[in-house]
Computed example of a mutant assay.
Amino acid sequence: MANFIDVMFFPLGTLFLGGYVGYQFRILTDRRKEFNEALIPLRDALVKSEAISETMIADIEVKLGKRAKVIKDTYEHEFLPTMSQVDQMQKLDGWGRPSTDKDEREKGEALKKEAYANMLAKCELK
């Protein structure tokens, strides 16, 4: 009787265990693909140094839910304050000429590149 149990239940148990593990890996693959697809528009804008809008971040948050928390926090607490500081450093007058000196504009440009690089680092593909 014990031999029958070993012969029947061990293979069935390993079959179900293998199916469950395979299913979990498949779910992880789908979640990774979904994460990467949600980040592609944001990453493209960051690489091209284009403007990042709150709607882009909101779209990512809708698609990813809790997994977008790091990106949203980085955007709100690091990226936006830095970009407002850059805007202050690169003010233009009424005729479109810079109203700040060259050193300040260069510092602003360096801050902008750093902000984009930090945001891009948080948006790594998995």
Rank of each mutant, 00 (worst) to 15 (best):
L64H: 05
R43L: 14
K113C: 09
P41V: 05
F25Q: 12
T100K: 11
K66Q: 14
D93I: 02
M1K: 05
I40V: 15
V86M: 01
V7L: 12
G13D: 06
L80T: 06
L111G: 01
A51P: 00
G19E: 07
E76W: 01
A45K: 13
D30A: 12
A121H: 12
L28Q: 14
G13H: 04
F79G: 00
T100N: 11
T82I: 10
F4N: 06
T74I: 01
V62F: 10
I40P: 01
S84Y: 03
G108V: 00
D87S: 09
V62Y: 13
R32N: 11
L111A: 10
T82H: 01
S53W: 07
L92Y: 06
S99W: 09
S99H: 08
M1L: 08
H77Y: 12
V62I: 09
R32W: 05
E124C: 01
E109N: 12
L92E: 10
S99R: 09
M1A: 12
D59R: 01
T55H: 11
D44Y: 10
P41F: 11
L80I: 13
F4G: 00
K33S: 13
K113Y: 14
K126T: 02
E114G: 01
A38Y: 08
Q85C: 02
K63R: 15
P11S: 04
Y23I: 01
A115S: 10
L39F: 06
K72E: 09
T29W: 15
Y23A: 04
Y75V: 01
E54K: 07
E104V: 06
S84I: 01
L15Q: 06
N36E: 12
D44L: 14
A117F: 05
I52S: 05
D6H: 06
I60S: 03
I57P: 00
R31K: 13
L15C: 05
E104N: 07
A45D: 14
L42Q: 03
I5P: 00
E109V: 00
T82R: 05
I27M: 08
L42E: 02
Y75R: 02
K122C: 10
D30S: 10
M83I: 05
K66F: 11
K72R: 15
A2W: 11
A121K: 15
R26S: 15
D103T: 08
K69E: 15
V86D: 02
R32C: 06
A68Q: 04
V86W: 04
I27V: 10
T29D: 13
L64V: 04
V21Y: 08
L42F: 07
A38N: 07
S84A: 10
E76Y: 03
D103F: 10
A121I: 02
V47D: 15
K48E: 15
D87G: 06
W95Q: 14
D93L: 05
H77P: 00
C123P: 00
L15E: 07
D30Y: 12
V47C: 14
E76T: 03
D73V: 03
L111Q: 04
E50G: 02
I60E: 08
L80S: 05
G13Q: 07
Q85T: 05
K66Y: 08
G65C: 07
I5R: 08
G19N: 09
P81W: 12
K102F: 14
V62Q: 14
M56T: 07
R32M: 08
Y116R: 02
A38Q: 08
L64N: 03
A68I: 01
V62G: 06
L39Y: 03
C123E: 02
G108S: 03
G18I: 03
M83D: 03
E109S: 10
A115N: 02
S49W: 10
